[in-house]
């Protein structure tokens, strides 16, 4: 097994009466792109802030690189890179100056730092904007600057807290590709998001959070195989009678059927050829069939089963 990079043990953080993080335990290994998925307010940022020793917490243990994390654990901090949701740069400094300033908090040697800054600029594609002040940058470029400031010192562990919120799709893809690239170069990544598509796209393993708790943890495939619903078939069909519906309900593997405004939705726990069998049943009844679709489970399905609510509603 790869080496443990982050170990969080029964972390509890309260804001007065609100339990923002509730006995959260995580273990993240070297080389992973670890996703922390959960709707807004589920406690992702609070967890990250505790992990970074920015926030005091009520209970729990946090170890990074096998050492106890604390605000003065500079030997740990020097190998961590942080990219927060809100852009954190000096408005009065240019792109180059900003990256150089933050990089200088980590790398003392001038020549080494210059190289690191230039690498970060090249990595984020900011070559043409080095002399720009942040307010002259478009939203996407500003995010890239924010990332460059966080990763210039070539950290071993990089934490991204919702780096794509309010970013256009094109920049979003660039950012996600960049994260994969950083991971390929050897960095362990923690990525928080409330967009399941992103997590599915880049994460090797993830924890699903809700109300401060981890409600599921594992690789994406593991999470999906654990859900009851493995396939959802939707058929447009008019005027289905009770008889037909009960026949559909009786089909093998079908565990939930609903029929609303001409749309029949059937959920299956498993099995193959579910679509064919359903369509045959309908055709035998001479029912006119419109559009048909079959969906594999998504992280949303996972979330829905575990919490009874949709993840994607929480934009």
């Amino acid at each position: 097994m790869a080496q443990t990079v982050v170990k969080i043990d029964k972390l509890v953080k309260r804001y007065k009466d609100l339990v923002a993080v509730d006995h959260l335990s995580l273990e993240i290994f070297e080389g992973e792109v670890f996703g922390l998925l959960g709707p807004n307010g589920s406690g992702k940022t609070t967890t990250i802030n505790c992990l970074l020793s920015l926030l005091s917490f009520d209970k729990g243990d946090i170890q990074i690189f096998g050492k106890n994390m604390s605000p003065t654990a500079y030997d740990i901090k020097k190998d961590i890179g942080v990219v927060m949701q809100n852009v954190a740069v000096f408005d009065q400094l240019t792109v180059y100056e900003n990256i150089d300033y933050f990089c200088g908090l980590y790398i003392k040697d001038k020549a080494q730092r210059k190289k690191a800054v230039e690498d970060a600029i090249a990595f984020t594609g900011l070559e043409d904007f080095v002399k720009f002040l942040p307010k002259k940058l478009s939203g996407g470029l500003l995010r890239r600057l924010n990332i460059a400031c966080g990763i210039a010192h070539k950290p071993k562990l990089i934490i991204f807290d919702e780096p794509t919120v309010a970013v256009d799709p094109q920049s979003r893809n660039k950012i996600l590709e960049g994260i994969i690239e950083l991971n390929k170069q050897g960095a362990t990544i923690i990525y928080t998001s409330h967009y399941m598509e992103e997590v599915e796209q880049i994460c090797t393993r993830l924890a699903v959070m809700d109300k401060g708790r981890v409600i599921a943890q594992g690789t994406i495939d593991e999470l999906k195989t654990n859900v009851k619903c493995s396939e959802t078939v939707t058929v447009e069909a008019r005027e289905l009678d009770e008889q037909t519906l009960s026949e559909v309900k009786a089909l093998e593997h079908a565990f939930e059927t609903s029929y609303e405004s001409g749309r029949l939705t059937v959920k299956y726990t498993g099995g193959k050829h579910n679509v064919v069998r359903l369509l045959n049943t309908l055709q035998n009844k001479n029912i006119h069939i419109g559009r048909v679709s079959s969906e594999q489970p998504t992280l949303n399905t996972v979330f829905l089963e575990l919490t009874g609510k949709e993840l994607r509603d929480k934009e």
Binding site: L54, P71, V82, C149
Partner: peptide
């Protein structure tokens, strides 16, 4: 400030 967060996570005291 967010700037403060970035400054605080760095290894400079």
């Amino acid at each position: 400030s967010t700037l403060g967060i970035r400054n605080c996570v760095s290894p400079t005291g």
